[in-house]
């Protein structure tokens, strides 16, 4: 079954720039997909539309059964609850501890305390930060901060995890650690879409790769097909 179905999507910004056009894409449940392409190819716009930060100008984008284009502003939270998002700049709250940052995503649903505790501890264990629960994000390394962000994104069990250049601020070794965590999460059944510039990672992971160019899918490589030759 397709988790994401995009048909003939187009996005033109107010300033007249068309970021996405004639885009068709299907992503199945449980897939791990890289989205790559040069700067300005529409990667960011594509994933922003997936979590409804942007609306498509025309065409159809269906995520987990929700028609994103027709989703009203006040109902966006319904989509967001099915999706986890991770960014390059982590977007953690500096005044909350690691534990609180992750628990934040559960508290808004009004879960009882013990349930929150159980889930947060479990997910912190998954990303390997169980013993840093009480620290503040500023005391953590970049890789650790990103793992907190990942923990927060997946703590309520989303079907889809969207990663916008999660390794963009990290060195090679740390990046691979993050990729291991993501692979682990993918194995547990979460679909992952990751936008990246880092061809090294894409080469190593050997997953499905979607190459975008001027807002269109230039090529869709099946698992293991994509090999980037460095110059």
């Amino acid at each position: 079954m397709d988790l994401i179905r995009i048909r003939n999507a187009k996005k033109t910004y107010k300033n007249g720039v068309t970021a996405i056009q004639d885009l068709d894409l299907d992503i199945k449940k449980g897939e791990f997909v890289f989205v790559i392409g040069s700067t300005g190819c529409g990667k960011s716009t594509l994933i922003k539309m997936l979590y409804r930060e942007e609306k498509p100008t025309s065409g159809k984008i269906i995520v987990g059964g929700i028609n994103v284009g027709k989703l009203r502003n006040s109902k966006v939270y319904k989509l967001r609850r099915k999706i986890g998002v991770v960014f390059q700049d982590f977007k953690l709250l500096p005044k909350l501890t690691v534990y609180e940052n992750v628990a934040f995503a559960l508290e808004i649903f009004g879960l009882p305390k013990y349930e929150i505790h159980e889930k947060v501890v479990k997910v912190l264990d998954l990303v390997g930060l169980k013993n840093k629960a009480k620290q503040y994000p500023t005391h953590l390394s970049g890789g650790e901060q990103q793992r907190v962000a990942i923990a927060r994104a997946i703590v309520n069990g989303p079907k889809l995890l969207i990663c916008d250049e999660p390794t963009g601020n990290l060195d090679e070794v740390t990046s691979m650690e993050i990729m291991k965590v993501l692979e682990e999460i993918n194995k547990l059944g979460t679909t992952i879409i990751m936008v990246t510039h880092d061809t090294e990672i894409v080469n190593k992971m050997k997953k499905r790769v979607i190459l975008l160019d001027t807002g269109r899918v230039l090529k869709d490589f099946a698992e293991g097909e994509y090999v980037h030759e460095s110059n």
């Binding site: 979590y51 939270y77 609850r81 998002v85 977007k91 709250l93 934040f104 995503a105 808004i108 994104a153």
Partner: peptide
């Protein structure tokens, strides 16, 4: 702003 942005991101409704 960031706090609000994150609340939105993790699925908090507007009233929430």
């Amino acid at each position: 702003k960031r706090e609000i942005e994150i609340m939105r991101l993790v699925g908090a409704s507007n009233i929430n």
